[in-house]
Design a protein around this nucleic acid. Structure first.
Lengths: 236, 236
DNA sequence: GTCTATATAATGATAGAC
DNA sequence: GTCTATCATTATATAGAC
């Protein structure tokens, strides 16, 4: 997206303006007029090209989310992690609009955002399976649920970036814009927890397990592990 | 909030209707008219009581966020964890509107939401410090950054609840409403990671450390660990 | 393809009666 | 305190000229 220069078709310029504006202000607050102004065209032309504001949004959703979701070339390889971090650190501005847009889309209701999230979970699942085979990731008995937790944790930096920045004292350029400083500050603490754990023993895990067992186990069939008996207990 | 019955002042009824509507539809989409309709009053009365839509929002922000933030009676105690889970599991509907509202507020720009997030981080920091002293939590050298990561991870379930539910096959009652099934499905996998780690060794952590060292280390003073040398390595 | 002008609907907010 | 009626503004979307 945003193919280097301004040598884009008018339609593409409007779309990119919309992606930026939707990401910054949200779908409801951003108006057709503001999109037109940012793209340097008349409001009528926006409707002419996309039919309606909803139509414009669908095109933006597909452009940002479908594309990003289908990338997924990350593997369960430490070198990939390193390259990914460096890539983002070296050209953060390129990702800024997409990140802001994805954040808004995940918060709204959007089929494309649903598919995006599901794609992230699937990729995470693959990474975990590969990592388990390679011996770099623990052999979880419920890989699906673990993947959901990991994916959700990862995206939280995206959803809460502004608050996380402020809490760390990292300068916030624009309201909901995530900068490279954020990644720099959080990568090591996060990976430290994933590598060495957070608690020193299993007493919190045990307490939660007890609390959950005192509830009725109904209506949860079909999404929990097939053999709920073999869950690991108290390791560290 | 929502003090059991309908024996509330009209002002309070309007406020509660607004909290529910703002949480479900977002601040921009919810209208003064819809709030009035849900409260069973005229639109003019809403303005009469709160001055403007923005004024209404401020009151809602304070009612939900300031109150929730000042609670914070959680301690670094496994028994507290257990009670918290059970409390939520036993009366989930009571929390539903607040949760939806907090999600919207954290996504928007709101001073009250900022204070709320900072409060969660502070409480998490206290919990970690207490846990370190008690020996239940690892002795992190950068407690602040760790607290931010933990807080962000915890709130991700709130921010992405709808997607997480769908990814796990948990039935979603209303679009952005988090049910108790979600907690039931995720608590153990999440605590398992916090207890036993995710990776089997430190190679991802090491790779990230290398990637970050190849960058200029400027403008990041004051928020990273004071003594970066004594970080634990390769445990699991 | 792109514009100006305008139709139509919805919104936040006000005035004033009760 | 609460209402009805209405204003002023802003929004999406259309019509039709160029």
């Amino acid at each position: 997206m945003r193919s280097t220069a301004e040598d884009l078709t008018t339609r593409a310029r409007i779309r990119d303006a919309a992606i930026g504006l939707f990401g910054r202000e949200g779908f409801a607050r951003a108006t057709v007029r503001s999109v037109a102004a940012e793209a340097g065209v008349s409001p009528a032309l926006v409707i002419h090209h996309f039919g309606s504001k909803a139509g414009l949004r669908e095109v933006c959703d597909h452009h940002v989310l479908a594309q990003t979701a289908s990338q997924g070339h990350e593997k369960a390889d430490p070198r990939a992690t390193r390259l990914l971090i460096q890539d983002y650190l070296n050209n953060p501005r390129q990702y800024a609009d997409e990140i802001a847009y994805i954040r808004r889309a995940l918060g709204d209701e959007s089929d494309a955002a649903d598919a995006f999230f599901d794609g992230v979970v699937s990729q995470t699942e693959d990474i975990i399976h590969t990592g388990i085979k390679a011996g770099t990731i623990r052999a979880f008995d419920n890989v699906r649920a673990t993947a959901v937790v990991i994916a959700s944790n990862s995206l939280s930096m995206l959803m809460l970036g502004r608050h996380v920045s402020r809490a760390l004292g990292t300068p916030v350029l624009e309201p909901h814009r995530i900068g490279p400083e954020l990644l720099r500050h959080l990568t090591l603490p996060a990976l430290d927890i994933y590598t060495n754990g957070f608690y020193t023993d299993s007493r919190f895990l045990d307490a939660a397990r007890e609390a959950l067992q005192q509830q009725q186990p109904s209506t949860t069939e079909g999404s929990m592990p097939r053999d709920p008996g073999n869950r690991r207990r108290g390791v560290a």
